[in-house]
Design a protein around this nucleic acid. Structure first.
Length: 760
DNA sequence: GTTGGTATCTGTGGA
DNA sequence: AGATACCAAC
């Protein structure tokens, strides 16, 4: 075909990966190795070979990545890229499911339950079955059900599996199988799918294969590509395999991944998929390409990352090297508190920005947990630095927004119990908890959606409370209009008639005002959706329905509207930063029990994944990498000591700034620092020690009342004797000999340490 | 049925 | 600290 100039900008391996179109291909792509470029050019190459766009399936992890890819393909091949199936697993599969819904007993307008909805269903079930909610924690339960689905275990299979039952019984939770079944029934009855169902139901559909549906999609998707393959789970791979791995298939599949960047095992992702892929497709001439040249980062960053990841035992061997040469060394910042960490990070950020003329959008602050964003936000505001926090609570998860969405959901799908429960008495219309409970009970007994009960009670019941009747009539009046009015008019009507807008307007507080703004913003979003003429185009069809809007926002994350032009500093979790790059990156909170997370520290596998996460974090940086940690941090309103993360010790000293405060690397700062020895190496003794000092009768004595010779109680270290106090004013440091710990002598700063005097 | 106060608890990450 | 769950009083 015509223009293949794009091939000239690729290195040899990249070119091979782009041009090997037929047969199975595995690309192992290190960070910054031009993976996106390879994927886009590959698609362009397929298109230029004369394949039409709608026969290409390209699965990515985020909508943003999909969008970016679409745009880049467009810029290479123009309009012939229209109609390509590029998107996330969840969004593309939900589209297929909508088209095929009738085959699996769902309506085209099925609802997507988000995490909150799922949890509510489970809570309700636990209550109904009179189970102890301590024993059956919803989070736990949800994870277990999710894991079951991801492992292709149906409720029936679960109930028949002696091993699962035995495990659950041993754990004192014999009802999990029942809960899984009932949860599945409830979702089905509500015409709802949770996130896992979007994958699972598709698998089920392809498996059952009604009307030879499988052949249709096998025939359709001639070329399949999967990005971030290391983060797919068993279920996702099973679907992919169904689509491409069959007798007579040309098996034109290309998966791209990096085992070193696998960070989603908590939702079932497994690098086993990479190994399985190799085995499954070996008989069919699989070709493996390794992209090892890093175009993103300086040598210091790439080398530090290489050394770090060497600490993981299991990995696919590869040597990532930088073409950029040496640059700036990695800076490490230590601070005494989380607040000071915020201050120092922002100071360093400003310094860097001024000295190297960086733009705000060149800079990112990354952290392990979303809760850490607060101090950085605070100091950004203080210093007038424009910033945007990604992740955490997205716009569509705010209460007032979800409330209006719940109205829309009920209009589209009245069986959606979770949405109905949310709005039946909001705004308050006198339908109290007692009557709601009664109706819920009836719905459970008759195994029908709540709406059916509400409708009967509200309309047919002679003694129907007037208020309930009014509610039903209102909803019915909305539903009537759903086929004639457009999505925007319908949503506006619902917002007004329900009294939602008036209720929020009546609240004059700043929060109230912002809520009104958010509801209006949602209405704007609906309007945009209706007016837009390009997006959501699939196989030539434009879908402007409210259903389509609701499904798109159910899968929306605020990462999706990250624009390159935004002149703001980026604040996000390391997980969210996957796939992104910045000139300057701050990786914060490098502390034991935080990064690595205390959740993952017990097992080698857990630790390895945390290390990969840190690997992902540092390889986001192109030129400037700064790592920070703090010696104390507030957790649940309580100050806790923390110590430097083991990962910092694993970084090679030669790539760090010489002034870096690294304890074990024996740097000069260490001996002069006033805080040295203040977060001692207590890793093992601490985790082993029982929590016996956490008694609620602990009451810290005022620091000024403490003096040498006194016996004191510390919540973690236990009972000890103060041997001396030195330092002046607000920097007084006590040396205490604790009797029950391995390294008994501790130096604690009195302004931080909570000590209770034990009278002798 | 509603309101407002207090007790309780938070186990990371996210489609 | 901050959200949520639960309970007593209106």
């Amino acid at each position: 075909m015509s223009n293949q100039n794009y091939l000239n900008s690729l290195n040899t391996v990249q070119k091979d990966a782009v041009t090997t179109l037929n047969g199975p291909v595995l690309v192992i792509a290190g960070p910054g190795s031009g993976k996106t470029r390879v994927l886009t050019y590959r698609i362009a190459h397929i298109l230029q070979s004369g394949i039409s766009a709608d026969r290409i399936l390209s699965l990515t992890f985020t909508n943003k990545a999909a969008k970016e890819m679409q745009e880049r393909i467009h810029s290479v091949v123009g309009a012939s890229a229209n109609g390509i199936w590029a998107g996330t697993f969840h969004s593309l599969f939900s589209r297929i499911l909508r088209m095929e819904a009738h085959h699996i007993g769902y309506s085209t307008s099925f609802t997507i339950y988000d995490t909150e909805d799922s949890k509510n269903v489970l809570s309700a079930l636990i209550k109904e079955l009179n189970l102890d909610k301590e024993t059956y924690q919803v989070n736990n339960l949800r994870n277990r059900i999710s894991a079951a689905k991801s492992a292709l275990v149906t409720p029936t299979m679960y109930e028949a599996n002696a091993e699962f039952l035995k495990q659950d019984k041993a754990a004192g939770r014999p009802m999990i199988a029942t809960l899984y079944r009932k949860y599945t029934e409830r979702c089905k009855r509500a015409g709802a799918m949770d996130f896992d169902d979007l994958l699972y139901r598709l698998y089920e559909l392809l498996q059952r294969n009604p009307e030879n549906i499988l052949d249709k999609y096998r025939e359709k998707f001639k070329y399949v590509m999967v990005d971030e393959f290391q983060d797919t789970n068993h279920l996702q791979y099973a679907i992919i395999r169904k689509l491409v791995h069959f007798e007579g298939s040309s098996r034109n599949i290309c998966v791209v991944g990096d085992d070193a960047q696998s960070i989603y095992s908590f939702r079932g992702a497994t690098i086993q998929n990479i190994l399985d892929f190799e085995n499954d497709f070996k008989p069919f001439g699989i070709q493996v390409f390794k992209l090892e040249q890093n175009y993103r980062s300086s040598e210091e960053i790439v080398q530090a990352a290489n050394v770090l990841i060497q600490h993981n035992t299991k990995q696919i061997q590869k040597k990532i090297w930088s073409h950029k040469g040496a640059g700036h060394k990695i800076k490490v910042i230590r601070s005494v508190s989380d607040s000071e960490e915020g201050k120092q990070v922002i100071n360093t950020l400003t310094e860097l920005r001024n000295r190297y003329h960086l733009s705000f959008s060149d800079i990112a602050i990354l952290y392990r947990t979303n809760a850490q964003s607060r101090v950085f936000e605070e100091y950004c505001r203080r210093e007038n630095i424009p910033y945007k926090v990604y992740g955490g609570l997205s716009f569509y998860q705010r209460k007032e927004v979800k409330d209006l969405i719940a109205y829309l959901r009920v209009i589209i799908n009245p069986s959606d119990d979770e949405a109905l429960k949310r709005i039946i008495n909001y705004p308050r219309r006198g339908i109290g908890d007692t009557s709601i409970q009664k109706m819920l009970q009836m719905s459970a007994e008759k195994e029908i959606p709540l709406w059916e009960v509400v409708k009967v009670e509200g309309i047919n019941n002679q003694k129907a409370p007037k208020l309930l009747k009014q509610f039903v009539e209102m909803i019915l009046s909305f539903t009537e209009k759903k086929d004639t009015e457009n999505a925007f008019d319908l949503a506006t009507l619902a917002a007004k008639q329900s009294g939602l807008i008036d209720l929020l307007k009546a609240d004059g507080t700043p929060e109230g005002v912002s809520k009104v703004e958010n509801v209006n913003a949602l209405l704007d979003a609906v309007k945009n959706f209706v007016d837009e003429d390009e997006s959501d185009q699939l196989d030539g069809q434009l879908d402007k329905s409210l259903v389509s809007f609701l499904q798109s926002i159910a899968l929306y994350t605020d990462m999706d509207d990250k624009e390159a032009g935004d002149e703001t500093v980026t604040l996000m979790s390391v997980h969210s930063a996957k796939g992104l790059e910045f000139k300057a990156v701050f990786v914060t909170g490098l502390e034991e029990n935080l990064f690595p997370s205390h959740m993952s520290m017990d097992t080698t596998e857990g630790l390895d994944e945390e290390r990969r996460l840190f690997y992902v974090a540092i390889t986001r940086a192109e030129t400037f990498l700064t790592i920070s940690y703090s010696l104390s941090r507030y957790k649940f309103g309580q100050m806790k000591y923390s110590e430097m993360s083991r990962f910092l010790e694993e970084l090679p000293g030669e790539y760090l700034e010489s002034t870096s405060p690294m304890r074990s690397n024996n740097r000069s700062v260490q001996t002069t620092s006033t805080v040295t020895g203040f977060a001692p190496n207590t890793r093992k003794p601490l985790s082993k020690m029982p929590d016996k000092f956490n008694a609620e009768d602990f009451k810290a004595s005022p620091p000024e009342t403490l003096s040498p010779g006194m016996t004191v109680l510390h919540q973690k270290f236990g009972i000890g004797k103060i041997t001396k106090i030195d330092g002046g004013r607000d920097n007084r440091v006590a040396t205490i000999l604790f009797k029950d710990i391995d390294e008994p002598e501790r130096r604690l700063m009195l302004k931080f340490a909570k000590l209770q005097i034990i009278p002798q």
